[in-house]
């Protein structure tokens, strides 16, 4: 079933891809026998054939994911999206601190150790990346206040 759902979703996407390749993509003028649409046409047809095969003969029946693990993964997803959302406004140090704290606590770290680890990752990570490696990271309020 899991295979069928996944393949079904991809089938719809591939159908859209192939439709665009056959009916919408077009070069205003071209000298070559193959235009911009030919390659996507080939790819779309091959993808649809593969997906049709999987729909007819799926080999994964169950998507083995216990509820508890699923909840954890959902939390991880929220953490990651939140990390990305806060990355620029809060700066690397604070957003990394919050993300590491949340994730390490969820994975069973002791609170005090998690606090020390997250603070160290934020501060040391920022100094190493920006000063030693000269990478571009969001500064955020802390660094701006200090400089």
């Amino acid at each position: 079933m899991a295979d069928r759902i996944f393949a079904g979703i991809l089938f719809v996407v591939a159908l859209g891809y192939t439709y665009i390749a056959f009916f919408i993509l077009q070069a205003p003028f071209q000298y070559d026998p193959l235009g911009p649409e030919s390659w996507p046409q080939i790819l779309g047809v091959v993808a649809l054939l593969c997906l049709a095969y999987i729909l007819v003969r799926p080999d994964r029946d169950r998507f083995d994911l216990p509820l508890r693990t699923g909840g954890r993964l959902l939390a991880l997803f929220v953490f990651l999206m939140g990390y990305g959302y806060l990355y620029q406004p809060l700066g690397f140090i604070i957003s990394t601190f919050l993300f590491c704290l949340a994730l390490s606590l969820m994975l069973g770290a002791r609170p005090l150790a998690a606090l020390a680890f997250s603070a160290a990752t934020g501060v040391v990570g920022y100094v190493v990346c920006t000063v030693l490696l000269e990478l571009n990271l969001p500064a955020g309020p802390i660094v701006r206040a200090l400089s």
């Binding site: 990390y83 990305g84 990355y87 994730l103 994975l107 990570g125 990346c129």
Partner: peptide
Amino acid sequence: QQYLTPLIAVLAFVGVYSIVGNA
């Protein structure tokens, strides 16, 4: 593992952000 795992995400974010520079 509880410390290693967050570090992977931090490294990935640093890598992508330092090159493309948008959220």
